[in-house]
Simulated scan of single mutants.
Amino acid sequence: MKHAARRPIDVAANRTGTELRLIVRNDLDADADKTRRVGRGLANMKHRAQLLGGDCSAGPCGGHWVVRAHLPVGSAS
């Protein structure tokens, strides 16, 4: 709610073997450049994912803001 400005978001989670893939996406705000915040949130998410042996990225993609994370998890069994 903080960053999607009360617009709908789409969340997809998929576990395959020992990896969890997360994708969170919402429509880009037409005024996004005007309301850009400076903070450490995205850098912190990337750092935490790397500490777990995964990765995280975020940015604009085809009219949406998309966050992707790939995180290791325990065995599927």
Rank of each mutant, 00 (worst) to 15 (best):
N26V: 00
V38K: 15
L20D: 10
V24I: 14
K34S: 02
R15S: 11
I23N: 09
S77C: 05
L20M: 15
K46R: 15
H70W: 01
A5F: 07
Q50K: 12
G17R: 09
G59A: 08
A69H: 07
L71R: 05
N26E: 04
W65K: 01
D29N: 11
K34Q: 05
A43C: 03
V24N: 08
K2Q: 05
G39S: 08
G74N: 11
H64M: 14
G17S: 09
D31E: 13
T35H: 08
A43Q: 13
Q50S: 09
K46P: 02
R21W: 00
H3N: 06
V24F: 04
G62I: 00
P60M: 10
G74K: 11
A69W: 05
H3S: 05
M45I: 13
R37F: 09
G63E: 06
W65T: 01
S77Q: 10
G74M: 11
L20Y: 10
N44M: 10
A32Q: 01
W65S: 06
R48E: 14
R48Y: 14
K46F: 04
A12D: 14
R25A: 15
E19D: 13
V11P: 02
R37I: 07
G74W: 10
K46G: 14
A32Y: 02
E19T: 13
R21L: 03
R25P: 01
A30I: 03
L42P: 01
L20N: 11
R68D: 06
C56G: 00
H3L: 15
R36N: 01
R36T: 02
A12W: 05
A49L: 07
T35S: 02
L20S: 13
D31M: 05
A4N: 15
V66L: 05
Q50Y: 02
G53E: 03
A12P: 02
R40N: 14
G54H: 04
H3D: 09
M45K: 03
P60N: 07
R68K: 15
D55T: 10
D10Q: 12
A58N: 08
A58Q: 09
Q50M: 06
V67F: 12
